[in-house]
């Protein structure tokens, strides 16, 4: 699984990292810096929770084949 972040929509709420601190990384201003990052299988549920709590709906999780 891979994280896709629409940086044009992310408004720096930082709820992804608040809800899923082991998955999401913020830049120094508090905007999501996890675009393109891979998610290890054991953190997929946490990643989904972080994405679902984004008020801007800026985060998509992409299943990768294989």
């Amino acid at each position: 699984m891979k994280i896709a972040v629409d940086r044009s929509v992310c408004a720096g709420h930082a709820l992804c990292a608040l809800r899923a601190p082991r998955v999401y990384v913020l830049d120094e201003d508090g905007y999501c810096a996890s675009d393109g990052q891979a998610v290890p299988p054991e953190l997929e549920e946490e990643a989904a929770q972080g994405a679902a709590n984004c008020p801007e709906r800026a985060i998509t999780l992409i299943e990768e084949p294989g």
Binding site: A11, G12, H13, A14, G30, Q49, A52, N53, P55, E56
Partner: peptide
Amino acid sequence: RSVSPHLAFGAGPHRCIGSH
């Protein structure tokens, strides 16, 4: 709840800068 969706701090470019 795993998701508590709300816009209490607004949304878009004016998102409350004091939210944290």
